[in-house]
Design a protein around this nucleic acid. Structure first.
Lengths: 183, 183
DNA sequence: CTGCTTTTGTTGAGAAATGAACAACGAAAG
DNA sequence: CTTTCGTTGTTCATTTCTCAACAAAAGCAG
Protein backbone atom coordinates (compact mmCIF):
# COMPACT_ATOMS: atom_id res chain seq x y z
CA UNK A 1 0.00 0.00 0.00
CA UNK A 2 1.02 3.57 -0.56
CA UNK A 3 3.61 4.42 2.08
CA UNK A 4 2.51 8.07 2.14
CA UNK A 5 -0.64 7.01 3.97
CA UNK A 6 1.13 5.26 6.81
CA UNK A 7 3.75 8.00 7.02
CA UNK A 8 1.21 10.79 7.22
CA UNK A 9 -0.85 8.96 9.84
CA UNK A 10 2.27 8.35 11.89
CA UNK A 11 3.51 11.91 11.73
CA UNK A 12 0.11 13.30 12.65
CA UNK A 13 -0.42 10.94 15.58
CA UNK A 14 3.12 11.54 16.85
CA UNK A 15 2.61 15.29 16.71
CA UNK A 16 -0.70 14.89 18.47
CA UNK A 17 0.75 12.88 21.34
CA UNK A 18 3.57 15.39 21.58
CA UNK A 19 1.11 18.24 21.98
CA UNK A 20 -0.92 16.22 24.45
CA UNK A 21 2.19 16.12 26.60
CA UNK A 22 2.40 19.89 26.70
CA UNK A 23 -1.15 21.15 26.73
CA UNK A 24 -4.68 20.15 27.48
CA UNK A 25 -6.60 18.14 24.91
CA UNK A 26 -9.22 20.83 24.42
CA UNK A 27 -6.59 23.49 23.81
CA UNK A 28 -5.06 21.55 20.95
CA UNK A 29 -6.02 22.76 17.46
CA UNK A 30 -5.93 20.91 14.16
CA UNK A 31 -3.75 23.70 12.83
CA UNK A 32 -1.29 23.12 15.66
CA UNK A 33 -1.18 19.42 14.98
CA UNK A 34 -0.62 19.97 11.27
CA UNK A 35 2.16 22.48 11.95
CA UNK A 36 3.99 20.16 14.34
CA UNK A 37 3.55 17.20 12.01
CA UNK A 38 4.84 19.32 9.13
CA UNK A 39 1.77 18.42 7.14
CA UNK A 40 -0.96 20.38 5.42
CA UNK A 41 -4.03 20.96 7.54
CA UNK A 42 -6.16 19.28 4.90
CA UNK A 43 -4.12 16.11 5.22
CA UNK A 44 -5.27 15.72 8.81
CA UNK A 45 -8.88 15.74 7.67
CA UNK A 46 -7.94 13.24 4.99
CA UNK A 47 -7.20 10.66 7.66
CA UNK A 48 -9.22 11.73 10.70
CA UNK A 49 -12.64 13.28 10.92
CA UNK A 50 -11.73 15.43 13.93
CA UNK A 51 -9.70 15.67 17.13
CA UNK A 52 -11.75 13.02 18.88
CA UNK A 53 -11.37 10.53 16.07
CA UNK A 54 -7.65 11.25 16.10
CA UNK A 55 -7.46 10.47 19.81
CA UNK A 56 -9.43 7.28 19.38
CA UNK A 57 -7.33 6.07 16.46
CA UNK A 58 -4.11 6.97 18.27
CA UNK A 59 -5.13 4.95 21.30
CA UNK A 60 -6.07 2.01 19.13
CA UNK A 61 -2.94 2.19 16.99
CA UNK A 62 -0.46 2.46 19.84
CA UNK A 63 -2.22 -0.30 21.72
CA UNK A 64 -1.90 -2.56 18.72
CA UNK A 65 1.75 -1.64 18.28
CA UNK A 66 2.38 -2.64 21.87
CA UNK A 67 0.55 -5.90 21.34
CA UNK A 68 2.41 -6.67 18.12
CA UNK A 69 5.73 -5.99 19.76
CA UNK A 70 5.32 -8.78 22.28
CA UNK A 71 3.34 -11.21 20.14
CA UNK A 72 6.21 -11.43 17.67
CA UNK A 73 6.17 -14.96 16.38
CA UNK A 74 3.64 -16.85 18.42
CA UNK A 75 0.68 -14.75 17.18
CA UNK A 76 -1.52 -16.40 19.77
CA UNK A 77 -0.74 -16.31 23.45
CA UNK A 78 -1.90 -19.59 24.89
CA UNK A 79 0.24 -18.99 27.93
CA UNK A 80 1.29 -15.86 29.73
CA UNK A 81 4.99 -16.43 29.25
CA UNK A 82 7.70 -14.56 31.09
CA UNK A 83 9.29 -13.62 27.76
CA UNK A 84 6.09 -12.06 26.50
CA UNK A 85 5.84 -9.84 29.53
CA UNK A 86 9.48 -8.85 29.34
CA UNK A 87 9.02 -7.88 25.70
CA UNK A 88 6.02 -5.75 26.67
CA UNK A 89 7.92 -3.93 29.41
CA UNK A 90 10.90 -3.46 27.15
CA UNK A 91 8.82 -2.02 24.36
CA UNK A 92 7.14 0.35 26.78
CA UNK A 93 10.52 1.49 28.05
CA UNK A 94 11.73 2.16 24.53
CA UNK A 95 8.68 4.24 23.69
CA UNK A 96 8.20 5.67 27.14
CA UNK A 97 7.53 9.23 26.03
CA UNK A 98 4.49 8.18 24.02
CA UNK A 99 3.01 5.67 26.42
CA UNK A 100 3.49 7.88 29.45
CA UNK A 101 1.25 10.44 27.80
CA UNK A 102 -1.32 7.86 26.82
CA UNK A 103 -1.31 6.24 30.24
CA UNK A 104 -1.34 9.29 32.45
CA UNK A 105 -3.45 11.70 30.44
CA UNK A 106 -6.28 12.26 32.89
CA UNK A 107 -8.55 13.75 30.26
CA UNK A 108 -8.95 10.39 28.55
CA UNK A 109 -8.86 7.16 30.54
CA UNK A 110 -9.45 5.46 27.19
CA UNK A 111 -6.04 3.96 26.71
CA UNK A 112 -5.75 2.30 30.09
CA UNK A 113 -9.31 1.06 29.73
CA UNK A 114 -8.74 -0.41 26.28
CA UNK A 115 -5.49 -1.95 27.48
CA UNK A 116 -7.19 -3.66 30.41
CA UNK A 117 -9.91 -4.90 28.08
CA UNK A 118 -7.36 -6.37 25.71
CA UNK A 119 -5.24 -7.99 28.39
CA UNK A 120 -8.37 -9.45 29.93
CA UNK A 121 -9.34 -10.96 26.59
CA UNK A 122 -6.00 -12.72 26.38
CA UNK A 123 -5.74 -13.67 29.99
CA UNK A 124 -9.18 -15.25 29.90
CA UNK A 125 -7.81 -17.85 27.49
CA UNK A 126 -4.93 -18.59 29.84
CA UNK A 127 -7.17 -18.80 32.84
CA UNK A 128 -9.33 -21.39 31.13
CA UNK A 129 -6.29 -23.70 30.97
CA UNK A 130 -5.35 -23.15 34.59
CA UNK A 131 -5.87 -25.49 37.48
CA UNK A 132 -7.69 -23.35 39.98
CA UNK A 133 -8.07 -24.05 43.64
CA UNK A 134 -11.60 -24.87 44.55
CA UNK A 135 -13.83 -21.92 45.08
CA UNK A 136 -12.06 -19.52 42.72
CA UNK A 137 -14.23 -18.51 39.77
CA UNK A 138 -12.50 -18.15 36.43
CA UNK A 139 -14.07 -14.80 35.56
CA UNK A 140 -13.01 -13.33 38.88
CA UNK A 141 -9.52 -14.70 38.37
CA UNK A 142 -9.29 -13.20 34.87
CA UNK A 143 -10.48 -9.81 36.06
CA UNK A 144 -8.04 -9.90 38.98
CA UNK A 145 -5.05 -10.78 36.82
CA UNK A 146 -5.71 -8.29 34.05
CA UNK A 147 -6.34 -5.38 36.35
CA UNK A 148 -3.20 -6.28 38.30
CA UNK A 149 -0.98 -6.36 35.24
CA UNK A 150 -2.36 -3.10 33.86
CA UNK A 151 -2.06 -1.43 37.22
CA UNK A 152 1.52 -2.53 37.74
CA UNK A 153 2.45 -1.35 34.26
CA UNK A 154 0.83 2.02 34.82
CA UNK A 155 2.58 2.48 38.15
CA UNK A 156 5.89 1.49 36.59
CA UNK A 157 5.54 4.05 33.81
CA UNK A 158 4.33 6.87 36.05
CA UNK A 159 7.25 6.28 38.40
CA UNK A 160 9.63 6.60 35.48
CA UNK A 161 10.43 2.91 35.37
CA UNK A 162 12.34 2.42 38.63
CA UNK A 163 13.12 -1.24 37.80
CA UNK A 164 14.27 -3.06 34.70
CA UNK A 165 11.70 -5.03 32.68
CA UNK A 166 13.27 -8.26 33.97
CA UNK A 167 13.02 -7.17 37.57
CA UNK A 168 9.38 -6.18 37.12
CA UNK A 169 8.43 -9.53 35.64
CA UNK A 170 10.40 -11.25 38.38
CA UNK A 171 8.48 -9.27 40.97
CA UNK A 172 5.16 -10.12 39.36
CA UNK A 173 5.79 -13.85 39.26
CA UNK A 174 7.00 -13.81 42.83
CA UNK A 175 3.86 -12.03 43.95
CA UNK A 176 1.60 -14.36 42.02
CA UNK A 177 3.39 -17.49 43.21
CA UNK A 178 3.30 -16.41 46.81
CA UNK A 179 0.42 -17.47 48.97
CA UNK A 180 -0.61 -14.12 50.25
CA UNK A 181 -2.02 -14.43 53.70
CA UNK A 182 -3.17 -10.97 54.61
CA UNK A 183 -5.59 -11.99 57.37
CA UNK B 1 6.61 25.88 -1.80
CA UNK B 2 5.34 22.35 -1.53
CA UNK B 3 6.50 20.98 1.80
CA UNK B 4 6.74 17.48 0.39
CA UNK B 5 9.83 18.52 -1.54
CA UNK B 6 11.77 19.71 1.48
CA UNK B 7 10.58 16.75 3.54
CA UNK B 8 11.62 14.18 0.99
CA UNK B 9 15.01 15.81 0.49
CA UNK B 10 15.55 15.85 4.23
CA UNK B 11 14.56 12.25 4.77
CA UNK B 12 16.75 11.04 1.92
CA UNK B 13 19.79 13.01 3.00
CA UNK B 14 19.37 11.94 6.62
CA UNK B 15 19.14 8.31 5.58
CA UNK B 16 22.18 8.75 3.39
CA UNK B 17 24.30 10.23 6.18
CA UNK B 18 23.08 7.47 8.47
CA UNK B 19 24.25 4.82 6.03
CA UNK B 20 27.52 6.65 5.51
CA UNK B 21 28.13 6.20 9.22
CA UNK B 22 27.82 2.43 8.94
CA UNK B 23 29.26 1.50 5.60
CA UNK B 24 31.56 2.72 2.87
CA UNK B 25 30.23 5.20 0.35
CA UNK B 26 30.70 2.84 -2.58
CA UNK B 27 28.82 0.06 -0.80
CA UNK B 28 25.72 2.24 -0.40
CA UNK B 29 22.91 1.58 -2.88
CA UNK B 30 20.09 3.86 -3.95
CA UNK B 31 17.71 1.08 -2.92
CA UNK B 32 19.21 1.06 0.56
CA UNK B 33 18.87 4.81 0.89
CA UNK B 34 15.25 4.71 -0.24
CA UNK B 35 14.46 1.91 2.19
CA UNK B 36 16.00 3.70 5.13
CA UNK B 37 14.33 6.99 4.20
CA UNK B 38 11.03 5.16 3.82
CA UNK B 39 10.63 6.60 0.36
CA UNK B 40 10.10 5.17 -3.08
CA UNK B 41 13.27 4.56 -5.00
CA UNK B 42 11.98 6.77 -7.80
CA UNK B 43 11.66 9.68 -5.40
CA UNK B 44 15.41 9.65 -4.86
CA UNK B 45 15.94 10.10 -8.57
CA UNK B 46 13.35 12.88 -8.51
CA UNK B 47 15.67 14.99 -6.38
CA UNK B 48 19.16 13.68 -7.05
CA UNK B 49 20.70 12.42 -10.24
CA UNK B 50 22.83 9.79 -8.47
CA UNK B 51 24.80 8.95 -5.33
CA UNK B 52 27.47 11.50 -6.09
CA UNK B 53 24.99 14.30 -6.58
CA UNK B 54 23.36 13.28 -3.33
CA UNK B 55 26.69 13.51 -1.51
CA UNK B 56 27.40 16.90 -3.03
CA UNK B 57 24.00 18.31 -2.18
CA UNK B 58 24.15 16.90 1.34
CA UNK B 59 27.50 18.55 1.96
CA UNK B 60 26.20 21.84 0.62
CA UNK B 61 22.92 21.68 2.52
CA UNK B 62 24.39 20.80 5.90
CA UNK B 63 27.10 23.41 5.47
CA UNK B 64 24.43 26.05 4.82
CA UNK B 65 22.40 24.89 7.79
CA UNK B 66 25.44 25.30 9.99
CA UNK B 67 26.04 28.76 8.56
CA UNK B 68 22.41 29.82 9.01
CA UNK B 69 22.41 28.63 12.58
CA UNK B 70 25.11 31.07 13.64
CA UNK B 71 24.25 33.93 11.30
CA UNK B 72 20.83 34.24 12.86
CA UNK B 73 20.02 37.94 12.80
CA UNK B 74 23.12 39.70 11.64
CA UNK B 75 23.10 38.06 8.17
CA UNK B 76 26.55 39.51 7.52
CA UNK B 77 29.48 38.86 9.77
CA UNK B 78 31.57 42.03 9.79
CA UNK B 79 33.31 40.81 12.88
CA UNK B 80 34.18 37.38 14.14
CA UNK B 81 32.20 37.68 17.34
CA UNK B 82 32.51 35.34 20.28
CA UNK B 83 28.75 34.73 20.17
CA UNK B 84 28.85 33.66 16.55
CA UNK B 85 31.50 31.06 17.28
CA UNK B 86 29.65 29.77 20.33
CA UNK B 87 26.50 29.37 18.24
CA UNK B 88 28.48 27.41 15.68
CA UNK B 89 29.97 25.06 18.26
CA UNK B 90 26.62 24.64 19.96
CA UNK B 91 24.87 23.80 16.72
CA UNK B 92 27.56 21.26 15.88
CA UNK B 93 27.15 19.68 19.29
CA UNK B 94 23.39 19.39 18.85
CA UNK B 95 23.77 17.72 15.45
CA UNK B 96 26.95 15.88 16.26
CA UNK B 97 25.94 12.58 14.71
CA UNK B 98 25.53 14.16 11.30
CA UNK B 99 28.53 16.43 11.30
CA UNK B 100 30.86 13.79 12.70
CA UNK B 101 30.12 11.71 9.64
CA UNK B 102 30.58 14.61 7.27
CA UNK B 103 33.79 15.72 8.95
CA UNK B 104 35.54 12.41 9.40
CA UNK B 105 34.44 10.51 6.32
CA UNK B 106 37.81 9.89 4.73
CA UNK B 107 36.31 8.99 1.38
CA UNK B 108 35.23 12.55 0.77
CA UNK B 109 37.21 15.46 2.15
CA UNK B 110 34.60 17.64 0.46
CA UNK B 111 32.83 18.89 3.53
CA UNK B 112 35.89 20.04 5.42
CA UNK B 113 37.21 21.61 2.25
CA UNK B 114 33.98 23.50 1.54
CA UNK B 115 33.80 24.56 5.16
CA UNK B 116 37.31 25.98 5.11
CA UNK B 117 36.49 27.78 1.87
CA UNK B 118 33.41 29.33 3.35
CA UNK B 119 35.05 30.38 6.61
CA UNK B 120 37.90 31.87 4.66
CA UNK B 121 35.46 33.94 2.61
CA UNK B 122 33.98 35.39 5.75
CA UNK B 123 37.22 35.80 7.64
CA UNK B 124 38.74 37.67 4.74
CA UNK B 125 36.22 40.46 5.32
CA UNK B 126 37.14 40.59 8.98
CA UNK B 127 40.84 40.57 8.24
CA UNK B 128 40.45 43.59 5.99
CA UNK B 129 39.22 45.60 8.96
CA UNK B 130 42.02 44.47 11.24
CA UNK B 131 45.06 46.43 12.26
CA UNK B 132 47.89 44.15 11.39
CA UNK B 133 51.41 44.35 12.66
CA UNK B 134 53.83 45.34 9.98
CA UNK B 135 54.96 42.53 7.79
CA UNK B 136 51.86 40.39 8.08
CA UNK B 137 50.05 39.95 4.78
CA UNK B 138 46.26 39.92 4.89
CA UNK B 139 45.87 36.87 2.64
CA UNK B 140 48.26 34.85 4.79
CA UNK B 141 46.42 35.99 7.89
CA UNK B 142 43.05 34.96 6.41
CA UNK B 143 44.35 31.58 5.40
CA UNK B 144 45.94 31.03 8.79
CA UNK B 145 42.79 31.92 10.72
CA UNK B 146 40.36 29.91 8.62
CA UNK B 147 42.46 26.78 8.58
CA UNK B 148 42.94 27.13 12.35
CA UNK B 149 39.24 27.42 13.06
CA UNK B 150 38.31 24.52 10.81
CA UNK B 151 41.06 22.39 12.24
CA UNK B 152 40.06 23.07 15.82
CA UNK B 153 36.43 22.31 15.03
CA UNK B 154 37.36 19.06 13.34
CA UNK B 155 39.55 17.99 16.24
CA UNK B 156 36.81 18.88 18.70
CA UNK B 157 34.24 16.77 16.85
CA UNK B 158 36.56 13.80 16.33
CA UNK B 159 37.46 13.81 20.01
CA UNK B 160 33.75 13.67 20.89
CA UNK B 161 33.63 17.26 22.07
CA UNK B 162 35.79 17.11 25.21
CA UNK B 163 35.03 20.78 26.08
CA UNK B 164 31.91 22.91 26.07
CA UNK B 165 31.40 25.38 23.20
CA UNK B 166 32.14 28.25 25.59
CA UNK B 167 35.38 26.66 26.72
CA UNK B 168 36.45 26.09 23.14
CA UNK B 169 35.83 29.69 22.13
CA UNK B 170 37.59 30.83 25.28
CA UNK B 171 40.58 28.69 24.36
CA UNK B 172 40.63 30.04 20.83
CA UNK B 173 40.57 33.67 21.89
CA UNK B 174 43.30 33.04 24.44
CA UNK B 175 45.49 31.41 21.84
CA UNK B 176 44.94 34.18 19.36
CA UNK B 177 45.52 36.94 21.89
CA UNK B 178 48.70 35.37 23.16
CA UNK B 179 51.95 36.37 21.59
CA UNK B 180 53.30 33.00 20.74
CA UNK B 181 57.05 32.94 20.88
CA UNK B 182 58.08 29.54 19.78
CA UNK B 183 61.62 30.39 18.88
C1' DC C 1 -25.05 42.18 22.09
C1' DT C 2 -21.62 43.39 18.22
C1' DG C 3 -17.94 43.30 15.79
C1' DC C 4 -13.32 40.86 15.22
C1' DT C 5 -10.33 37.12 15.04
C1' DT C 6 -9.41 32.33 15.00
C1' DT C 7 -10.56 27.85 13.99
C1' DT C 8 -13.13 24.63 11.51
C1' DG C 9 -14.50 21.62 7.84
C1' DT C 10 -14.84 21.35 2.72
C1' DT C 11 -13.67 22.04 -2.04
C1' DG C 12 -10.89 21.90 -6.56
C1' DA C 13 -6.84 22.28 -9.39
C1' DG C 14 -2.29 21.13 -9.61
C1' DA C 15 2.12 19.16 -7.92
C1' DA C 16 4.65 15.48 -5.93
C1' DA C 17 5.17 10.71 -4.58
C1' DT C 18 3.80 6.09 -5.37
C1' DG C 19 4.19 1.21 -7.22
C1' DA C 20 5.02 -1.38 -11.13
C1' DA C 21 7.25 -2.25 -15.16
C1' DC C 22 11.12 -1.98 -18.27
C1' DA C 23 15.80 -2.61 -20.54
C1' DA C 24 20.62 -2.38 -19.52
C1' DC C 25 24.47 -3.35 -16.88
C1' DG C 26 27.92 -5.59 -13.71
C1' DA C 27 29.01 -9.03 -10.34
C1' DA C 28 28.84 -13.40 -8.47
C1' DA C 29 27.93 -18.43 -8.95
C1' DG C 30 27.37 -22.49 -11.41
C1' DC D 1 31.12 -19.11 -20.78
C1' DT D 2 26.34 -18.91 -19.36
C1' DT D 3 23.14 -18.12 -15.99
C1' DT D 4 21.36 -16.11 -12.34
C1' DC D 5 20.86 -12.10 -9.33
C1' DG D 6 20.76 -7.38 -7.76
C1' DT D 7 21.21 -2.64 -8.99
C1' DT D 8 20.46 1.10 -11.97
C1' DG D 9 18.06 4.72 -14.31
C1' DT D 10 13.72 5.74 -16.70
C1' DT D 11 8.83 5.75 -17.83
C1' DC D 12 3.76 5.93 -16.88
C1' DA D 13 -0.80 5.82 -14.85
C1' DT D 14 -2.66 6.39 -10.41
C1' DT D 15 -2.93 8.09 -5.77
C1' DT D 16 -1.88 11.12 -2.16
C1' DC D 17 -0.71 15.55 -0.62
C1' DT D 18 -0.45 20.46 -1.12
C1' DC D 19 -1.99 25.10 -1.36
C1' DA D 20 -5.43 28.47 -1.58
C1' DA D 21 -9.99 29.77 -1.15
C1' DC D 22 -14.29 29.45 0.95
C1' DA D 23 -18.44 29.72 4.23
C1' DA D 24 -19.75 28.63 8.71
C1' DA D 25 -19.04 28.12 13.52
C1' DA D 26 -16.70 29.24 17.81
C1' DG D 27 -14.18 32.24 20.92
C1' DC D 28 -13.31 36.65 22.62
C1' DA D 29 -12.79 41.84 23.56
C1' DG D 30 -15.07 46.04 23.99
Amino acid sequence: MDRRIERSRQMIMQAFIGLLEEQDFEKITIQGIADRANVNRGTVYLHFTDKYDLLEQSVETYLMMLVDSCLQEERVATELSRELLIRAFTYLKEHASIYRVLMTNKGSPTFRHRMTQFIKGNITVVVNYMNLETGIHRDVMAQFLSISVTGLIEWWIVESMPYTPEEMVEQMTKILEARLQLW
